[in-house]
Each structure stands twice: as structure tokens, then as C-alpha cells.
Design a protein around this nucleic acid. Structure first.
Length: 510
RNA sequence: GGGUCGUUAACUCAGUCGGUAGAGUAUCUGCCUUUUAAGCAGAGAGUCGCGCGUUCAAGUCGCGCACGACCCA
């Protein structure tokens, strides 16, 4: 009946033995007075072996990560959320009774220690324990101490284990939190207000992507998880809030990769009376500052490639980039039919209605994008591929838009906003005509958004920054799954029959 | 969606030509009161991802499936 392996069995037996000694295995009464980090500077002046019984008693709590047991003494390393310290447990000091219980302690247990600071012969600051408290008995073994947990699937599926044993993972997620906190601070300090707009939208807009669909029962209506907050944030500009931002999740019902998770975190911000030029300045300042704050430098390395984030950053129009980086001759760019021919020549499949703007953008993605290692703003995107951006006043074929590329990846997308409701309606209609056959992307005209524009939206510029990709860059993480605590994975089927598609016997089936 | 590789003890990994399943860590027992990948001696631990096939015999060969990684679309 008990299919558990030997180690799990032994752990349970040990726990039972401890309980038989009268130990509460899950005590809730221990309050650590000290963070381990706070003890570290206090030991600087201590000399090895000069132990003094009258020293101050500290209380700490944490998880046992390693243990070296002798007959009547032992060393363990204990980690809390702040730091790690060695604890020395000596039978003479803690007494026979506590020591007998201590013998049943395991790596992985969460424990409380009261004791005094001293330095060992080797000079390591340690706590000599006076009293020992079991706070939570662990019933499962942790991964091996030397190699740690390297199986990426287990790291993602059991992130809690990863966080226990992989200091780099803890560091990455601390940095992620810090990046988001600093970004909020930066925008708040510049008068932006953080708002929350709907996650569930009747018309998914603001981007081109397949949405997740859900259903509201009471209203009997379909809703979509948002693919972008853009159209709601701009409604707030109409409402009179001049600087707004939102940092939250977007959802896109598309493939998974090292750069795509179905739910991901996006920063979007909008500023009235600003242009995309203002946002380039802001972006450059924000991201270089974030790197300085989080990494202590603007010169970072991403997967072995050096990247210099110090401003000023390179700014190129798409045409300039196609020529100088992509190696396309300038004459081709001025002739629409030659651009289309070149795109087809390069193996790009274009839809029938695709124009030169689409072809240029595809050529850019193919020939230029991955070669933009240091931060580069690409401007003057074709109007054809920018349904929400303002047309350039001198040349209606292009928009006042930029995308930011670092290490060959798109990090940000921004533009001076289109606030002409008639132009907006025409572009929506055109977009729907082009995508009308693709039901999955749900091309529906957002009438209310056009109505909002008809009331008048101030001139404005807005930007979206993919937070996950930014965190990847600043933490040198190869996969988006390394910067999302619980990334999307297919369900485990270990030891089970794969889910049956039809299960009429299941009361929970729809 | 296509291709390549992977899946063996709790973890990290070996496993030759198809012939009774191996190591280190972890665990258990004994010794050990300043170790830090502690040490010494001994022991236990496996649905070899799942299924089917070939074979006297499959971790190993073949086919299918699941999950994952990487590359491509």
C-alpha cells in the first residue's frame, strides 16, 4: 500500500520518533529576533576560538542546507531570506535531551536557533546554539549539494525547490522585483499615475494576437483576456489623466518559446503632449539607470555578449538600418515593387494584399533585428504595420514610432499616438478587412474607443516595455522561464494514463 | 507544425557487442566535540518515462505515445 520510496519512509519514521520525544514538528511559537544578515557584520572583530559565554544571545530561524555531524557535536548551515550562517551544535552546550532530538534533524528542516556568535578555527563566523527549536520538519530530501538542481523541467515545475537550492534563481527573482519596484519609482517620481484597466475585455485590442476567450455566465457574454491594455490607457488620456502607466499581465494565446509565455508582464505608459522623441529619451534613461541600480554597471554581459547600456543610444530609421545593417541598396528602398521582389527573393512569404511597408518590416526582421546588439532605437515604421500610431506629418507612409532592440531582441515599442478618430476608424476597418478571415485574432472594431477619440484625446506618446525580456537582459537569463516564477508547462502525466478527452462519468466535465 | 537530442536510485550521472543494474551525493547503522563537497567502516535503495513489437533474452534494437531542451517555421 505504501509505494513511497525508502527515503520518504525514513523521514516519516524520524518525524514520528521526534514527535514521540514530545517535539512539536510544526511549532508556530518561535519568533526569530534577528535576520541572519544582521549578524554578519557583528562578528568582524571576533577572534577565532575566543568564545565568551557572556556574549549576547541572538535568535534566528531558517532552513538547514547542510549538516556535518560528529558524535557529540555538529555544524550546519542555515539560510533565511537574508543570508546564510553556520550553526555549531555541541552536546555539552545544548544538553543531552536537546541533542537527542537534534540527532533526528535533517537537511531541509526549518529550525529556530538561539545562541552566541563566535569564530571557528578556520575563521568562519558561526552561532553556537544554546537552544534548538523545530519549526517545520521536512519529509522530502533536497537535491544533491554539489551539483544542485540542474534539471530545468524540475526547476520550473517545482520552483520552490529551485529557490531553496539555487542561489542564482533567488538572485534573479530578487532582481526582477527590484526592477519592477524601481520602474514604478521612476515613473511615480515623474508624475505618472499607476492605474488598473480591465484584464477581461469584450473586444481584445491594442495589439495583434490571438486572445484567450472566457465566458461571463450571468451576462451570457464572451470576454477576452487582454492582449494589451493600450486602448483603455488612452481612454484615460481622453478622461484628462495626462501621465498614466500600468504594469501587469497580458495574455496571448500563442506558442511557447524561450521568449514567449502565454501570460507575460508588460509596462505601458502614456504621456500627453509628448512625442516619441521624448519617450526615447525617457527609455534610455530608465533602462540604463535600472541596470546601474540592479547590477551596479551599465556595461553588462548577456549570454557571453558584451552590451553597453550607457546613453546615448543609437537611433536609426528603418530605412537607414536596412541599408547600413541589412546591406540593402538605397535604390531598392525607394521603389515599392523592388522591395516586394527582394522580400520574395529572400524567401519571405507575403500575403496578397501586403504592401512595401509590410515587406520592409519583414526584411528588417530577417536581416537587421538580430544584429542590433547594443541598444538601438529604430524609427519611421511604415504606416502599414502601425495601426495605432500617428502618421508622420511630412510623410504619411511612415509613422512617428520606434522600437527598441537590445541583443537582437525587441524590448520596447512606442509611438506618438493617433488621436484623429476618423483616421483611426479607417485604419481599424482596413485592419479588419485584412484579417477578416482569421477568426482567432478576433478582429472587431472597438466602437467605444473610436467614440472616446471623438471626444478628443490630447496629443500624446505611449510605450510598451516587455518586463520579462528586460529582466532576462538584466539578469543574463537565457529563457523567459528563468524570470517567471511559475512558467506555463504542460501538465505532468508521470505514472498516469494521459487525460482522456471524453469522460462522461466525471461530474466536473462541461 | 517539422527536425535533432534527452528521460536510468531522492539529486548529479555512467551503463561496452542485446546476456542478473553501477558510481558519487543524499539516506540508514557504527566510530568520531572546530567541520565546511568533514572523515573512516558497513548497509539499504530502481516500474531503466509509458506502451507495443523483434528476440531464447531488451536499459540497450524497431515503432508509437508523453514530457522536456535546442534548432527551424
Amino acid at each position: 500500500m505504501n509505494k513511497d520510496n525508502q527515503i520518504l519512509k525514513q523521514r516519516r519514521e524520524k518525524a514520528e520518533a521526534l514527535a514521540a520525544l514530545g517535539v512539536n514538528l510544526y511549532s508556530n511559537s518561535f519568533k526569530p529576533a534577528n535576520a541572519i544578515k544582521d549578524l554578519l557584520p557583528k562578528g568582524k572583530h571576533l577572534a577565532p576560538e575566543a568564545f565568551d559565554e557572556t556574549r549576547f544571545t541572538y535568535t534566528i530561524a531558517g532552513r538547514i542546507l547542510s549538516m556535518r555531524k560528529f558524535g557529540k557535536a555538529a555544524f550546519c548551515h542555515i539560510v533565511d531570506s537574508s543570508a546564510r550562517i553556520q550553526v555549531y551544535v555541541k552536546m555539552d552546550t545544548v544538553g543531552d535531551e536537546q541533542y537527542a532530538a537534534f540527532k533526528k534533524w535533517d537537511i531541509g528542516d526549518i529550525v529556530g536557533i538561539a545562541g552566541k556568535l563566535f569564530k571557528t578555527q578556520t575563521g568562519e563566523l558561526s552561532v553556537q546554539a544554546d537552544t534548538l527549536t523545530m519549526i517545520s520538519k521536512s519529509l522530502r530530501p533536497l537535491p544533491e549539494k554539489w551539483h544542485g538542481l540542474t534539471d530545468v523541467e524540475t526547476r520550473y515545475r517545482q520552483r520552490y525547490v529551485d529557490l531553496i537550492v539555487t542561489p542564482e534563481a533567488r538572485e534573479t527573482f530578487r532582481k526582477r522585483v527590484e526592477i519592477i519596484r524601481l520602474t514604478r519609482e521612476y515613473l511615480n517620481n515623474r508624475g505618472f499615475m499607476e492605474v488598473e484597466t480591465p484584464m477581461m475585455q469584450p473586444v481584445p485590442g491594442g495589439a495583434t494576437a490571438k486572445p484567450f476567450k472566457t465566458h461571463h455566465k450571468a451576462l451570457d457574454m464572451d470576454l477576452y483576456l487582454r492582449i494589451a491594455p493600450e486602448l483603455y490607457l488612452k481612454r484615460l488620456l481622453v478622461g484628462g489623466f495626462e501621465k498614466v502607466f500600468e504594469i501587469n499581465r497580458n495574455f496571448r494565446n500563442e506558442g511557447l518559446s524561450t521568449r514567449h509565455n502565454p501570460e507575460f508582464t508588460m509596462l505601458e505608459f502614456y504621456q500627453a503632449y509628448a512625442t516619441y522623441h521624448d519617450l526615447m529619451d525617457l527609455t534610455e534613461e530608465l533602462i540604463s539607470w535600472l541596470s546601474q541600480e540592479v547590477n551596479g554597471t551599465m556595461e553588462i554581459e548577456y549570454q557571453g555578449t558584451k552590451v553597453n547600456l550607457a546613453p546615448p543610444w543609437n537611433r536609426l530609421t528603418m530605412d537607414e538600418a536596412l541599408v547600413s545593417v541589412g546591406g540593402i541598396s538605397p535604390e531598392v528602398l525607394t521603389d515599392p515593387s523592388k522591395i516586394l521582389d527582394l522580400a520574395r527573393e529572400k524567401g519571405i512569404k507575403l500575403e496578397e494584399q501586403a504592401g512595401p511597408g509590410k515587406a520592409k518590416t519583414e526584411l528588417f526582421e530577417l536581416l537587421v533585428e538580430e544584429r542590433l546588439i547594443n541598444p538601438t532605437f529604430i524609427t519611421s515604421y511604415p504606416t502599414e504595420v502601425s495601426p495605432l500610431a500617428r502618421k508622420n506629418e511630412e510623410n504619411p507612409e511612415i509613422t512617428d514610432r520606434f522600437e527598441l532592440f537590445i541583443t537582437g531582441r525587441e524590448i520596447a515599442n512606442a509611438f506618438s499616438e493617433l488621436n484623429d478618430p476618423i483616421d483611426q476608424r479607417q485604419r481599424f476597418v482596413k485592419q479588419i478587412e485584412e484579417r477578416g478571415d482569421d477568426e482567432e485574432v478576433h478582429p472587431v472594431l472597438d466602437e467605444d474607443y473610436v467614440r472616446a477619440l471623438e471626444y478628443g484625446m490630447p496629443s500624446a506618446a505611449g510605450e510598451g516595455i516587455g518586463i520579462d525580456r528586460l529582466v532576462m537582459l538584466l539578469t543574463d537569463s537565457p529563457s523567459i522561464r528563468d524570470v517567471i516564477l511559475f512558467p506555463h508547462l504542460k501538465p505532468e502525466t508521470k505514472g498516469q494514463e494521459p487525460e482522456k478527452k471524453h469522460n462522461p462519468g466525471c461530474p466536473c466535465s462541461r
